[in-house]
Design a protein around this nucleic acid. Structure first.
Length: 430
RNA sequence: GGAGAGAUGGUCGAGUUGGUUUAAGGCACCGGUCUUGAAAACCGGCGUAGGCGUAAGCCUACCGUGAGUUCGAAUCUCACUCUCUCCGCCA
């Protein structure tokens, strides 16, 4: 949510900033509603003050035995007028809120305009591995190694699901353990939130009302604002952890991480080249989240992306880090870095982490504030989130980048203590 | 699923025959006096949001949420949400 006062005072500035997202917006209607809203408030509050004053005098008049029937009839009219004005006010505030709720965040100054094509690669780690033999893609590798069962996954969950089996399950779980261990070391608090969330969580995160069709709804209520859904990312839960709270300055920053599966419909996004685990309806992710003071959110974003990079580096995977162009950032975010790992068979890099600064955009939607010591006013916190990391593309990257001529795969060293093996060998012969 | 109890400002808690309670009071917290320092004591401050105003300030709303009755609602009516206790069922 953007600040209505900022739009009121600098409409052109906000308009221009949003153009970076290729988003052309007209504030004339909004500003006229805003003006009307304030005039209604002024008028209705004046009447309310009158009502309060006279209502307080009525007991005394009654005691004196005066005839107040005319006064009461008069006040009845005043009350009716107030009611009408408050209805008008509610309607216009509804329009204002709907308009504001539909606007995306303002991109940071150093974020370039345009879409994906303008993303800038800012760091590259390692090199594309060279193979002197015929390589396999990850679907064949994990099948041959007995790590994943796609057919039975589809049988029991439908298209877009798979089952991690044996060493595959251990490998998946080892990744999660590795991430958890690192975040604990860095002093982040570990949370395991519910996987089913209320509509309000989706709104505060900035995913609703626009993207209600992208999540799996749970059949609890037909009413939209009571709707519950399976979380598409733990971010949706974590942003709401402190919803409607006023935090103390000295408690910030708050640093959390959570493990949850992520459930996404991904309707219509299936592409033939994205076979295997690249895009499923359910994947595992550890999510980092911070609530910070406004003046510290820039450095917090660097901390998050630094932590995520360190995790990928620990696995020894070739990857690159990009700063996203305005249009490629999700609506709530003002600045986003992506980490993509190299998937040899696809000849492409695939996202394993996305770290973003929402500035005060989500905090406004979730009403998450803080108060400085000795300050009168509250301020909105800044919120940041980052995957640390999502596993579904790591496993393909690991098996493809670490494959050997005999079809075996070398286990990254940091994971070995949980798997008990240095090398995974084919178990299924074709 | 059944029965009962409850929801008031950071916390505890008064207020429920509707109108001098404009949400009392205690605790916690902050500032000050006193003290070598601390404690105690005393004094003062101490919710959120919105509107008007250059400002001091004035006004309005909020007692779980939403509607209703009334000149006037924390207080009365209805619906809903959540929490707690007990019973039943269940992986």
């Amino acid at each position: 949510m953007l600040d209505i006062q900022k739009i009121r005072n600098n409409p052109e500035e906000v308009k221009n900033a949003l153009k970076k997202r290729l988003y052309d917006v007209d504030f004339t209607e909004l500003l006229s509603w805003d003006k009307e809203r304030r005039s209604i408030i002024a008028e209705s509050e004046e009447l309310k003050a009158k009502r309060n004053k006279i209502s307080a005098e009525i007991p005394a008049l009654k005691k004196q035995g005066k005839d107040i029937s005319e006064l009461l009839a008069d006040m009845k009219n005043v009350s009716d007028t107030i009611k009408k004005m408050d209805d008008q006010l509610r309607e216009i505030e509804g329009k204002i809120n709907d308009f504001l709720a539909g606007l995306p965040n303002i991109p940071a100054d150093d974020v370039v305009a345009g879409g994906k094509e303008n993303n800038q690669v800012i760091r590259v780690y390692g090199e594309k591995p060279e193979f002197s033999f015929e390589t396999k893609n990850h679907v064949d590798l994990v099948t041959d190694l007995g790590l994943v069962d796609y057919e039975r996954g589809a049988k029991i969950g439908g298209s877009g699901f798979w089952v991690y089996t044996n060493d595959g399950a251990l490998l998946e779980w080892a990744l999660l353990n590795y991430f958890i261990e690192e975040h604990i070391k860095d002093g982040y608090e570990f949370l395991l939130p519910p996987h089913i969330l209320t509509y309000g969580c989706g709104f505060a995160a900035g995913q609703f009302p626009k993207f209600t069709d992208d999540v799996f709804k749970v059949e609890t209520s037909e009413v939209n604002d009571k709707m519950q859904f399976l979380l598409p990312t733990a971010e949706t839960a974590l942003i709401n952890y402190h919803r409607d709270e006023i935090l103390k300055e000295e408690d910030l920053p708050k640093k959390y991480f959570a493990y949850t599966p992520c459930y996404r419909k991904e309707a219509g996004s299936y592409r033939a080249e994205e076979r295997g685990m690249i895009r499923g309806h359910q994947f595992n992710k550890v999510e980092m989240f911070q609530f910070t003071l406004p003046e510290h959110s820039e450095e917090a974003l660097e901390e998050l992306i630094g932590k995520a990079e360190k995790l990928v580096q620990g696995l020894g995977l070739h990857h690159r880090v990009s700063k996203l162009a305005a249009q490629d950032c999700s609506a709530s975010m003002g600045k986003t870095y992506d980490i993509e790992v190299w998937i040899p068979s696809m000849n492409d890099y695939k996202e394993v982490s996305s770290c973003s600064n929402a500035y005060d955009y989500q905090a406004r939607r979730g009403n998450i504030r803080f108060k400085r010591k000795n300050a009168k006013k509250t301020e909105f916190v800044h919120t940041l989130n980052g995957s640390g990391l999502a596993t579904s593309r790591l496993l393909p990257a690991i098996v493809e980048q670490n494959q050997q001529e005999d079809g075996s795969v070398i286990v990254p060293e940091v994971l070995r203590k949980w798997i008990g093996k240095d090398v995974l060998k084919p178990v299924n012969s074709k």
